[in-house]
């Protein structure tokens, strides 16, 4: 029997479709189903149908809304720092040319460290009384005593502190991805702009940024999703404390599902979280990538 092109494509897609249906579609179906039921962790698979009650509870809970706000703040904080530092490093590597080889390799080291290890490392570096960060600041004379800054204990700065390992760990990914994008910008365009008398800033704004737009979109979406769903790095540092000041949605979902055993409620929050992430990703996609294509 001869396969048509269309059938051949379908056959090739079948394994991936089956895999996705089993390991993504089915768990997603369970999540959505549980979100409409009152399910206890001690009796999974059983539970009374409660309609939209779990969603109503989630949307009216100040704890959920506060966690959502912190998730947004944490993501913006981590992503902005990673992007600014990563873009700076990428431009530096690009300017250095071949001489940046060793630097790029060294820069990629943090990528190989598991997030939980990074979180633990930073936790012990940031602990005020025995941590090295405050010890160095004290030695430099920037603080009078090693207990002056409570990185993980001060509710006003803890969200910034728990973002540090994330920034440290993934700035290199942003830098390397943007560096690859910079490498693909045709050098003739830059040369032509130079001949036309464009300044470095003009070349950056008129050539580099517009041509990098698809790469920037991918980096922002990937890293944004990754930062928003952070869990292990924060949990190992503060467990969301003090007094929920570093509790983002993933931690709240974990707490609700595993520690409180409210599977239905946790599933509803997770479904809303997922929907929010999809909407934001779509928005970023169309704003940055879409605009570039249209132009």
């Amino acid at each position: 029997m001869k396969l048509t092109d269309r059938s051949f494509v379908l056959v090739l897609l079948l394994p991936a479709t089956l895999f996705l249906a089993s390991f993504v579609g089915y768990p997603l179906f369970l999540l959505i189903r549980d979100s409409f039921h009152d399910v206890s962790i001690y009796a999974l698979g059983e539970g009374e149908f409660v309609g939209w009650a779990n969603y109503a509870k989630a949307l009216s809970s100040s704890r959920v809304l506060d966690s959502a706000g912190r998730t947004l703040n944490y993501t913006i904080l981590a992503l902005s720092a990673e992007f600014v530092l990563g873009f700076g490093a990428a431009l530096l590597f690009n300017a250095m040319g071949k001489r940046s080889e060793i630097l790029r390799t060294v820069f990629a080291f943090p990528l190989m460290i598991p997030p939980i290890v990074a979180g633990l490392l930073w936790r012990f570096m940031l602990i005020d009384n025995i941590g090295i960060v405050n010890h160095i600041l004290e030695q430099l004379g920037l603080i009078a005593d090693s207990s002056d800054i409570s990185w993980l204990g001060d509710r006003d700065i803890v969200l910034f502190s728990v973002a540090l390992p994330n920034i440290w760990l993934t700035t290199s990914f942003v830098a390397l991805a943007l560096y690859t994008g910079l490498q693909n910008i045709p050098s003739e365009l830059i040369e032509a702009a130079k001949i036309d008398g464009a300044s470095a800033m003009q070349r950056f704004h008129r050539i580099t940024v517009p041509l990098l737009r698809p790469v920037i979109a991918v980096v922002l979406i990937l890293r944004g999703i990754d930062a928003a769903r952070a869990f292990d790095m924060i949990w190992i540092q503060t467990e969301g404390g003090p007094r929920f000041a570093s509790e983002i949605l993933s931690i709240h979902i974990y707490r609700t599902m595993i520690r409180y055993g409210n599977v239905g409620e946790a599933s509803a929050i997770a479904a809303l979280f997922m929907l929010g992430m999809l909407l934001i990703s779509a928005m970023v996609f169309f704003l940055i990538w879409g605009r570039g294509t249209w132009q």
């Binding site: 602990i127 005020d128 009384n129 025995i130 207990s147 409570s150 990185w151 993980l152 003090p242």
Partner: peptide
């Protein structure tokens, strides 16, 4: 030690 919010079981042991 003054920054009590950072002291949990593990930190208490270390101290």
């Amino acid at each position: 030690p003054p920054n009590v919010n950072e002291v949990d079981w593990g930190v208490a042991e270390n101290l």
